[in-house]
Design a binder for these strands. Sequence first.
DNA 1: CCTAGCATGTAAGCCGTTACATGATTGG
DNA 2: CCAATCATGTAACGGCTTACATGCTAGG
Lengths: 179, 179
Amino acid sequence: MSLKHVILTLIHQAPSTGYEINKSFEQKIGYFWHASHQQVYQELAKLKKTEMLTCEHKPQTDKPDKKIYSITVKGRDELRKWLHQSLPEKKYKDILLVRLLSADLLPLDKLCEQIQKAAEFEQHRLDEFLHIQKQCYSDEQKKYLSALDKRLFINMRKGILLAEAELAWAKEALETLQN
Amino acid sequence: MSLKHVILTLIHQAPSTGYEINKSFEQKIGYFWHASHQQVYQELAKLKKTEMLTCEHKPQTDKPDKKIYSITVKGRDELRKWLHQSLPEKKYKDILLVRLLSADLLPLDKLCEQIQKAAEFEQHRLDEFLHIQKQCYSDEQKKYLSALDKRLFINMRKGILLAEAELAWAKEALETLQN
DNA sequence: CCTAGCATGTAAGCCGTTACATGATTGG
DNA sequence: CCAATCATGTAACGGCTTACATGCTAGG
């Protein structure tokens, strides 16, 4: 229900192509919203058909042609409406926690391996965030953030706090399981 | 892809009815895996058709009839196979963080309200977990946990750690936004 | 009397994944 | 020469949501 609005948000910030939007999902946006490139192109087509976006075809000679999407008044209205709606309830899905329940079919060492691997993934994530924090948000820089940069900073902080919590949990879990 | 396995896990622990499984999703399982009752009934039908489950019809006089599902050898094999597969990558979806990006269309006070409300929701979740922790896992009780209870304890701890991280983030976010 | 609990589903439609598809240019 | 980057999609299928549907009993 919301990929639509994520895309509208991105194009509201600046007109862009499907390719650029996909780049965002692979990089920074991907940290808090996942989407595949196929899904993005399908959604763009839908948003064009419902007149939330307009599309300008731009031929290129050395590279494949581009389609540059811009948001319409109708699209901006839709986005504004959505932003003011209250948040739907979160739908938790954590496979590792499900696996923990299947006690006797998954041996302890295999389970610990999986937790370990998940922890490594989170550590990697955390390192990336910490790197960004160091690069872009020194104490000095933090004093002069624009409204948008401030909000980006807050997003990154959530990435850090959640990754840290995941890591703390993994450590604790392994200790409890192996004692 | 995994509701199937969540249900198999539950029925592997003990034969049950669709109604009971739905109760689990509304209560403890719901903390880390969401599913609607329609989805559960549909999945049960599918699992029966593919011979992962058998079904015993049990008429009742004072209440509606029941269908008691049990796991088959094939079902257990499928579950075991799934448990040994490596975890798929997590797909993050956090609407609040998307809304933070749409700077100029959502006024600061509205945004803060939404963060506040999300924080209250997390606080409620945390309180529930802390209540369970107090009831079921005193220091004394923790010494004598069965293998399964230990794993349940670990699950609850994740609920606590993540809820705390969400709360810490919300507090920090509100401060940053309002300074 | 009305609500909550017990107990089960079907149908339509949208959302998301997986597989398939093309083809030029640039840099190592 | 090979891989990566640029740039776009279609088709089939499966997962999940939303709306609709039924009907009895016990308790306040």
